[in-house]
Design a binder for these strands. Structure first.
Length: 883
RNA sequence: GGGCGGUUAGCUCAGUGGGAGAGCACUUCCCUGACACGGAAGGGGUCAUUGGUUCAAUCCCAAUACCGCCCACCA
């Protein structure tokens, strides 16, 4: 059935995306085309959207990763699959809290003054107020997730899933509480996990400080340190046991500068590197990971000298006048004091990597603190195995090694945070310090009643790392722990698409949790999309002023052009895209090209037969057969490339087909009368197929065009994906058309070199044979190359291509001679190369037979061409003599 | 310290064990029955360097140089 669609009397000359996109998107969403229900009758194609921060805005990174997801979802939907792209938002605890705390401070208050319930209410308000922004931006880019299934990591269902997961892991002994050295972010005022630390190289100093053996002396042991302020918490000096320089000092004590009030021992430990610094190292167990280990081995005291504000504190141990100072002020003052006392031996410039918080950018402070942790090794082992036995694949493959290495070296995960916005730990304490873990307060109270004599319960104030809820995402959004039809049919999903920066934070943890809670990996394939940088390869940032807002590009060039422009820059193996805005502009031009091909079709006097109908096979012209063959190959190629996640190449293939083959050659060829009887139907058919191939990439213009030309159905979104079997192939005709293209290019070149006015028809002669045997083709050549062909009887050629070659421009003999001489020179070179190769017995003996045969054919071709060129040169010389 | 990418035309990047490619930019010409957001033609590269494997290397291997990224408790 062909839907009747009124063809606009006059389509505007240029495609105007802004007038089209909103109208189409609203229609799609209202009609529910993005929505689907679990349907066991169809193969599922499920992608879980990496949830953007609830208050986030669309950035260029979404342009690559999210466009890729949208493309695949649309592609698989058109293939009739049970395709659904599941969206949602992340509560982004630390980021959101940072904004709220700043806001409260501006108002002269704080979260503590507000109180927890009011603060949480405010966070909810804030999330709701800004939460819709990114959805609308995604709509503007044409992303079509199943909005009706949108979830939020803090919603009731997901919060219940988080509590269930926590309690189970606790009961299994995989979650525990302990006092450990953790990463403290003094700005965000919370712990962060190892995975959230960024090591940044910074210019600093390496101070050489002497710890004297006795008061008033400068004789002692000298250590090198980058952090003099932590000296206040030193409990020992460590040297390597084999270090001859210090052997005699082991066991002695030195006075701790700059106060010189405390004596600390010199101990021996293998971890000390004799070659670094002075070979002696100060030991501050409460503020350094290595020192913490030394402290444990030697059973040293572990006094903390920094508080949660990263200020010096005397809570554990005397710190003299430095109490209350900021860590960096204390550093400066201590260096001064050391210098005064003559204990500062050297002050070297030193560049080293400093642990900073990827959340706030603040230098992270290792602190000793009571926190909740997750034992990771038992969870990592099966996740590692899934990769190693090939069940879990990465695209590009090399990222698998990143995943593997991290899991192999995994350490326990600190999951408790001191922010308030998030999932509060389902943990309660009795006044006696007994721990009760339960999914709900009611359940906790019941436990307390039975086990703890009904003791009062106080809930742990901490919340869970945001990534804990993210790790449950692939199944929590499907209803887990309930047994829903969604969970039944849509878990596991088909592919996860994200950037490499969250392989550890998110991907690995989803795999671990998926296996642990559902016994199955959450997706068999992880596609890692490139990160987007500016054209100079710099990271896009507001401070650099080089950030590009995708919505600006959508406004300037249209959503389709933005998507196409981005996809064309994505390379299968690439790890970055150096984004060039010009690519979007080119893509806009591309869309305009499509638009005008449509206008051309609609302006043809003949009416197309119908959406999926082709003219009788026998009536197809050479040009028809060629473009249909190219269409067939393009369908096959695009399918293969999409299946292989090769988006850049997909876009490139479509671009070439639509612009250079369909528009530049087929449409031009139809301007020859010999193609008139079939052109409208064939062009309509090819355009219809091309729009369907292009729809996942450029959803809007393809719908607009598809609805305008003959089509089946009400929307291209659910139209069937083109089937190569339905497109007739004629290789021989295609080859002949290619020969014509080659000859036409040659003729155009001659015109150009002979400076023949492009507006003028040029005279050309052709063999009688071509005139008689291929009248249609001759007419087409004449139109494509703008020729007026006058036939001169000449010797019939042996084949079509040779016959074509006999179509020559009637230009001055001198011009022709110059051109032919250039050609002769080139051919002589080719022949020489070929002869040399074929004269090489090693080549003949060792190269594969088909390679040799190909080389022979090539040489024969060149020899023949050379002969022709020389014959023509002789003929021209004769004319010259006669004339 | 470990690991991973990259080096091809002015720019951004494809590509292949046997005749160097695209888009943009550039030059010349053209509003030719859809499109100047267009059409036609053209110039431009010792495929980073060195060595090896091979009948044959831009492509495979090794080393070097430079660029980028990830991981790591050398203070």
């Amino acid at each position: 059935m062909t839907a009747q669609n009124p063809i606009p009397a006059e389509l505007p000359k240029n495609y105007e995306p802004s007038t089209v996109e909103r109208r189409l998107y609203e229609r799609w969403e209202a009609a529910g085309y993005f929505h689907d229900e679990p349907d066991p009758a169809r193969p599922p194609f499920i992608i879980c959207m990496p949830p953007p921060n609830v208050t986030g805005r669309a950035h260029l990174g979404h342009g690559s990763t999210y466009t890729a997801m949208d493309v695949l979802t649309r592609y698989h939907r058109m293939q009739g699959e049970n395709a659904d792209w599941l969206p949602g938002h992340d509560h982004a605890a630390i980021a959101t809290e940072a904004v709220l705390v700043r806001e409260l401070k501006r108002e002269g208050t704080s979260r503590e003054q507000l109180g927890r319930p009011a603060y949480i209410e405010r966070a909810w308000d804030w999330s709701r107020r800004y939460g819709g922004t990114i959805n609308d931006q995604f709509r503007a880019i044409g992303f079509g997730p199943d909005w009706a299934r949108g979830r939020f990591t803090m919603d009731d269902g997901l919060s219940a899933a988080v509590r269930r997961a926590f309690v189970r892991l606790y009961e299994e002994g995989l979650i525990y509480r302990g006092k450990r050295l953790i990463n403290w972010d003094p700005k965000a005022k919370t712990t962060i996990s190892d995975a959230e630390i960024e090591h940044v190289d910074r210019d600093a100093h390496l101070w050489h400080v002497t710890y004297p053996l006795a008061a008033g002396s400068t004789a002692g042991i000298t250590v090198a340190t980058t952090r003099p302020e932590t000296m206040l918490g030193d409990v020992a000096i460590a040297v390597h046991p084999d270090d001859a320089r210090y052997r005699d000092l082991i066991g002695k004590t030195v006075l701790l500068p700059p106060l010189l009030e405390r004596a600390i021992p010199i101990i021996a430990d293998d971890v000390v590197d004799m070659a670094f610094g002075t070979g002696a190292v100060k030991v501050t167990p409460a503020h350094d990971a290595t020192d913490y280990e030394i402290g444990q081995r030697h059973k040293l005291a572990m006094p903390s000298i920094l508080d949660v504000d990263a200020r010096i504190t005397d809570a554990d141990i005397a710190v003299g006048p430095y109490a209350g100072l900021d860590r960096f002020d204390a550093r400066a003052q201590i260096v001064d004091a050391l210098r005064e006392r003559g204990l500062l031996v050297a002050e070297d410039a030193y560049r080293h990597s400093v642990a900073t918080s990827s959340r706030s950018g603040e230098i992270v402070e290792p602190l000793l603190s009571e926190q909740w942790f997750m034992t990771m090794k038992p969870l990592a082992a099966p996740a590692l195995k899934a990769y190693q036995d090939g069940r879990l694949k990465f695209v590009p493959e090399r990222y698998g090694r990143t995943y593997e290495q991290w899991l192999e070296n995994i350490r326990d995960w600190n999951i408790s945070r001191q922010v308030w916005w998030g999932h509060q730990l389902p943990v309660w304490y009795t006044p006696d310090g007994d721990v009760v873990v339960a999914e709900t307060f009611e359940a906790a109270r019941e436990i307390a009643r039975v086990k703890h004599a009904g003791a009062e319960l106080t809930q742990d104030p901490d919340t869970l790392d945001t990534w804990f809820s993210s790790a449950l995402w692939p199944f929590s959004i499907l209803g887990w722990p309930e047994k829903t039809p969604e969970l039944e049919h849509w878990y596991p999903s088909q592919v996860l698409m994200t950037g490499w920066e969250i392989i550890f934070l998110w991907v690995a943890r989803m795999v671990m949790f998926g296996i642990h809670f559902l016994g199955e990996i959450p997706f068999p394939t992880v596609f890692i999309s490139p990160l987007v940088f500016d054209a100079q390869g710099r990271k896009m940032s507001k401070s650099l002023g080089n950030a590009i807002d995708p919505l600006d590009l959508v406004q300037k060039f249209g959503a389709d052009a933005f998507r196409m422009g981005m996809l064309r820059q994505m390379r299968l193996e690439g790890q970055e895209v150096r984004f060039q805005e010009s690519r979007c502009e080119e893509a806009r031009n591309f869309n305009n090209k499509i638009w005008n091909a449509t206008r051309y079709l609609l302006a043809l006097p003949e009416a197309p037969l119908g959406a999926m109908t082709l003219p009788a096979p026998a009536s197809l012209t050479l040009a028809d057969r060629w473009i249909l063959t190219r269409l067939h190959d393009t369908i096959v190629e695009v399918g293969a490339k999409l299946d292989g996640y090769d988006f850049g190449s997909t876009a490139e293939t479509l671009w070439r087909f639509v612009w250079y083959e369909l528009c530049d050659w087929y449409v031009e060829a139809t301007k020859s009368d010999s193609n008139a009887p079939t052109r409208a139907t064939v062009l309509s058919f090819v355009l219809n197929n091309a729009m369907r191939l292009l729809h996942p990439v450029a959803p809007f213009i393809t719908e607009e065009v598809w609805l305008t030309i003959p089509h089946d159905g009400v929307t291209i979104m659910t139209a069937t994906w083109p089937d190569p079997e339905e497109v007739p192939v004629d290789r021989e005709a295609a080859a002949r058309f290619d020969a014509i293209r080659e000859r036409v290019e040659g003729l155009r070149n001659e015109r150009s070199e002979n400076q023949i006015d492009p507006r003028a028809m040029a005279d050309a002669s052709a063999s009688e044979w071509l005139e008689n045997a291929f009248p249609a083709e001759q007419a087409m050549v004449a139109v494509l190359a703008k020729l007026r062909i006058t036939n001169h009887p000449s010797a019939p050629g042996a084949d079509f291509a040779e016959c074509l070659r006999s179509v020559v421009l009637s230009v001055s003999p001198a011009a022709r001679r110059d051109r032919l001489q250039k050609e002769e020179k080139r051919l002589v070179g080719e022949v020489e190369r070929g002869e040399k190769k074929l004269g090489n017995e090693q080549f003949l003996g060792k190269a594969a037979a088909d390679v040799v045969a190909k080389e022979r054919d090539k040489l024969a071709g060149y020899v023949k061409e050379l002969e022709n060129v020389r014959m023509e040169l002789v003929a021209i010389a004769a004319i010259g003599e006669n004339g």
